[in-house]
Amino acid sequence: MSPLFLNALEVIVNGLMAGIMYSLVALGFVLIFKASGIFNYAQGVTALFAALTLVGFQTGQVPFAHLINTIFGTKIHHWGDGFNTILAIILTMLVMILFAWLLEKIVLKHMVNQAPIILFMTTIGLAYFMEGFGDLMWGADIKTMDVGLPSGGSLWLEDFTKGWAASGTEYYGMYIDVLDVWAAGIAILLVVALTLFSQYTKTGRALRAVADDHQAALTVGISLRTIWIIVWSLSGFVALVAGIMWGSKSGVQFSLSLIALKALPVLILGGFTSIPGAIIGGLIIGVGEKLFEYSVGGLLGGATENWFAYVLALAFLMFRPQGLFGEKIIERV
């Protein structure tokens, strides 16, 4: 095979892997939008907050240490060596559930029946609040995320594919980051678990009922407020997974909240209400932007991915305004 073809194949495989990473973020948006019609602007910051909390538990950091030290003149930072990863993940999930519960009690219950734009504005406020709260709770320094997942280029794949190129040509084997493979596996598990949960559990069916029709769900006795707590908790869990994967690449820092920007074209393309749409949309965006950068990027000076993802999503919008898997809105008058 020609190295040119193999390089293109490598770009496609890595595009698929990058797409999975985008999908992980998009999933959180979809879950909340499906159940409550809210476009959660705070999803990226939620991923940052979850990752900060996880690292805080892992490293034994005292929450609000800076505030405590300022008020009481103490010099506390850590309470010990921290929890092991599994326990830290469980505790972080409990924090995310507590956060969802407080959010419902303090904010969301007052927003019932408000226009979508009001709900959207509420999540903007929430994003800024969480940004500051996360800083105050865990500090703004860059933290290392290590949950024991392997990372780095796969030597096995490199050796295995080296011989694929025609003899006499320069080819170094195919590259794939092992962490991306793990992310793909975890994303598949996540989607399967979410699908099973929504299809085969009573709560899952209630979630689907609320997603289909709020009013009808209320009339059969489903508590909208409980469903909101569950759905924000689930979205918190997805945000934690996204935070772990992205944080393993860049460290846990404010920029993690900007991964939401990568999810937007995925949502436009895949639709705001479809879990498979988030995955397929992510894969199309990932492959599309990487292939464009590989084939045309050089002619345009490079760094085309950020804007090309949106161009691709908009191109799809022209043919399917509701996104590939989104529900077509038909309003009868």
Partner: peptide
């Protein structure tokens, strides 16, 4: 060789695949 990265630079897969090929 010039290899640009757009702000904020959270995702650089294309750039590093290119660098890996360019050696």
């Amino acid at each position: 060789t010039l290899v640009p990265v757009d702000h904020p630079g959270q995702e650089q897969k294309s750039q590093w695949l290119q660098l890996r090929r360019d050696r």
